[in-house]
Computed example of a mutant assay.
Amino acid sequence: MEGPPDIAIFGAFRVWGGTNRRLLNQIHSWVHWGLNVELVTYRDGVKFYPDEVPKSVGFVQLGTQGKLASSFALWSYMRRRRPRVVLSVNHISNLVLAGTWRLPGVTSHRYLSVPNTFGESEKLSQEPRRRARKFRQICHFYPRSDGVIAVSDGVREDLLNTVGLKGVEVTRIYSGSVSPQALKRAEEPLEHPWFGDHRDRPVIVTVGRLVPQKDYANLLRAFALVLEERPARLVIVGGGRESEALEALARELKILEHVCFAGFQANPYPWMAKADVFALSSRWEGLVNVLLEALGLGTPVVSTDCPSGPREILADGRYGILVPMQDPVALADGLLTTLRGDGPIYRTEEAVAPFMAETAARNYLDYFGLGIASHGDQSSVSGGGS
């Protein structure tokens, strides 16, 4: 990459994940418009979705572990590379970036992004001391930035009203969860007997890490109730530490033969596109990529009404059925209603319009104050760059 980056994105990246997918979608637009983008990571961070990131995007591994050492390494990077904007992507990387605030010789604008709620997190609510410590960190460090970006109205309200963040502008900008590139990948073949042209029963699909936040135990219990009413199958796409426990629960519920634990799939879109209904059973979220992607693929959705993303995405139930959290009876009823064809009717384009990658990429640039006129014509964007 020639010259200093227009946008440096900072985080301890994993090779995959919802936040990284949204970033990648926006990066494609930024690169297409002629901006220089660089990924900067630390700890054991790697380049996310390496086969999909445009080749012009730079990658820097700082080689540090702790927050203080990482702040100094990031400061050194910012002095050397002089990016116009640095965007951090989660709480720890936000703290590291904020730690560079008073260090000299930096002209970059620093923005912190928040992908999930803090106050509504069930995990934090069970650990009051940790919750209080994190709230103090946010209130102390986040004002040491040029702005905070919340991925949804619910996340913004959580920061302002529950966490009590003051002294910095908090702006909601929807991330680019839906992109033409991702939706195109749904057309790739899916070799699985349950998804044949002559399937004899409907298939429910969910996608996500097998972690307590996603509450797949609730989904399994709901699915057992669905099977009492009609034949169906359930596919859970994703890996994680709860894999064995969830398989054990499916066995205990006597539904294991009707459930497929598909593990992590680099391309989950064919699974989602061929589903008869997409289910989300989470206890808390920020902005839910997979829910938006399912909408974009035209797959009917049923979701728990967890804080804070689903109600916002589904427009209070206009675009999909919302059910209470941790209520398998209600979730089963929503699934059965949708499988009968009695779910909401809507235009896909209308449902996903605010969450398209190009729209998000443009809104981020407007917020950053990066003039696009010198980098090309936005209206010409039709796909990714390389």
Rank of each mutant, 00 (worst) to 15 (best):
Q378W: 15
F13N: 01
V211F: 12
G176D: 03
A12K: 13
E122R: 15
V40P: 00
E242I: 14
H375P: 00
V237H: 04
E252I: 14
R251G: 09
F72V: 15
G17W: 00
S374Y: 00
V31S: 10
I92T: 09
I345E: 07
Y42A: 02
V259Y: 07
V89L: 06
S177Y: 02
F264K: 05
E157T: 11
L246H: 13
Y319D: 05
S308N: 12
D342K: 08
R43E: 08
P143Y: 01
V60M: 04
G99D: 07
Q126R: 15
L87A: 00
D197L: 08
N116M: 14
G164I: 14
V288D: 05
R129P: 00
P344Y: 00
R230F: 02
V89A: 10
F195N: 01
L24F: 02
E191W: 05
L62W: 06
R172A: 06
N116A: 14
S243T: 15
V203Y: 09
G296H: 12
R136Y: 13
S282T: 13
G176V: 08
P307G: 07
L314W: 06
R144S: 14
G3C: 10
K134N: 12
M356N: 02
P189S: 02
G3A: 09
S179K: 03
L322W: 02
E257M: 04
R136I: 14
L246F: 11
W194I: 15
W16Q: 07
